[in-house]
Design a protein around this nucleic acid. Sequence first.
DNA 1: ATGGTGGCACCGCCA
Length: 256
Amino acid sequence: MKAATFNANSIRSRAGIVLDWLEANQPDVLCIQETKVQDDHFPVKAFEDCGYNFVYKGQKAYNGVATFARGQIEDVKIGLDGDESEQARFLKVNLGGVSIVNTYVPQGRAPDSEQFLYKLEWFGQLREWFDKNFSPGEDVLWMGDLNVAMDARDVHDPEKLWGSVCYCQEVQDALKDVMGWGFTDVFRQFNEEDGLYTFWDYRVPNGFKRNIGWRLDYIMASKSMAGRCTGCWVDKEPRALKKPSDHTFLVAEFDI
DNA sequence: ATGGTGGCACCGCCA
């Protein structure tokens, strides 16, 4: 099984990039975040002949998640239990016995904001949901834009950035708490060096070229899945295209 | 460099 995640920053603007990437890489599942489109405007036509089934949950202008799969999509669950916000950030499916949880974790805006509290709460509700619905022996992948840099290797300037909403003690603790359910960050099973990122801020001049980025996207695997992971890598090619997203594709392969 | 880019909905907000 090949699994991938991509923050598209508008599925309508990036439909071509997604179609080309699916065609070239043939993943079994692709989780997309920040589709930025309400459901009745989702570009269904663009994807109808691409050989993938897909489900989505969006809202106007912000957030939104979509999951593409080559095989049958079953047991779709939209929205995280306990999150009353109506923000489209959570989409779980089952693919041939593997549960795929696609999340766009709240960014958090500023450390002293309500949005930051919402981010921490959201992680808490997610941990509760995993506790209630799965046992760590099951085949589960949790992937998406988690809006957390786990350690100093995951940001370009750890000293300067420490304390920001995606790189501070509170969010690292919150993410580790969810991982405590039984998740492994499979990217770090294969890549130990620093400077390997999935996101480069548009506002940083030539940020991609200068590799001024962050690792904010993850593929988290339950024990049984992590043990069968044979590789995990960042595909930076889409970032070199015209009109790229600010994120790129993260990919993992599993012996299943 | 106290700005800069990008998407969406609307003339600001969010990342």
